[in-house]
């Protein structure tokens, strides 16, 4: 299933947030969106997932979601959004219960996804007992368990320290390599973008417009920490963004 964005524009009252964004999101690929703060990256992600209505333009699905998909457009949030009163197991169970999956079937699905995300030992733990990295693993497991057609990841690693971030990037790459999934990955971290993205969309500062789409051909599994092949694209991204970021940083915030 592909996602097609046509001429998306959005504004909050007098503030124009993004302007005329058209984009193809191809299946089984990871598309990163980078841009200076306030360029509407996260808003765009909410629009793609139907959590927000754009002022103009349309988001379309092309084709049907794959077999066994419970929730075609599934988010992974920056702050994990785990229910603190439910265990790891319970948090994953939450998204299955509403689809009428229960009993032994549910248990086996949960066990499987916990094994895939290396969380089996933590099934009974409460979120408060987990480190940030573990929490985000749980959130990713919860996203994977519904077999999403597209994963919408909103700065999923921003709340983590840099070591944990590296570990999780490796995990994400391993997961994708095993079963390629479609993802839109919003980040302000260019190193993450070049490690994880097949395509990287660079947005300008507010109102956000597409500056350029950068393709990186090197297979995900071959990209490594400090990969010299990724240095050039990362530098290119930074060149595109530097002025925008500086200008965005100097803007007054209108709330």
């Amino acid at each position: 299933m592909d996602i097609h964005l046509s001429n998306i524009s959005h504004r909050y009252d007098a503030t124009e947030v993004m302007r005329d964004i058209s984009l193809e999101i191809p299946s089984s690929r990871i598309l990163c969106i980078v841009g200076p703060s306030g360029c509407g990256k996260s808003t765009l992600l909410r629009i793609i997932g139907g959590l927000e209505r754009p002022s103009a333009g349309e988001v379309g699905q092309i084709g049907d979601p794959p077999e066994g998909c419970l929730n075609p457009l599934t988010y992974v949030f920056q702050d994990f959004a785990l229910l603190p009163w439910r265990t790891v197991e319970g948090n994953i169970s939450l998204v299955l219960e509403d689809h009428g999956i229960d009993g032994a079937k549910k248990q086996s699905i949960i066990a499987d996804v916990l094994a895939r995300t290396k969380l089996s030992d933590f099934a009974k733990a409460l979120p408060k007992q987990l480190s940030g990295g573990m929490k985000q693993r749980v959130a990713i497991a919860r996203a994977l368990v519904v077999n999403p057609a597209v994963m919408l990841m909103d700065e999923p690693l921003s709340a983590l320290d840099s070591q944990t971030r590296e570990l999780l990037m490796d995990d994400l790459i391993a997961l994708w390599t095993r079963t390629p999934f479609t993802a839109v990955y919003v980040t302000h971290n260019l190193a993450e973008a070049v490690r994880l993205g097949h395509q990287i969309v660079v947005l300008s500062r507010r109102p956000g417009e597409i500056r350029e789409i950068v393709e990186i051909d090197k297979p995900l599994s071959e990209r490594t920490f400090g990969d010299p092949d990724l240095e050039a694209p990362q530098r290119h991204l930074w060149d595109l963004m530097r002025e925008e970021a500086r200008a965005a940083d100097a803007e007054l915030i209108h709330v």
Binding site: N71, L73, T74, Y75, F77, L83, L94, D98, R142
Partner: peptide, 23 residues
């Protein structure tokens, strides 16, 4: 964000109230 999470996973209104809002 927990409520938005519930919506993003397609939970029903009643499920969101019962499993997220009330607890």
């Amino acid at each position: 964000t927990l409520i938005r999470m519930g919506q993003s996973f397609g939970l029903s209104w009643w499920s969101i109230v019962r499993k997220i809002v009330l607890p």
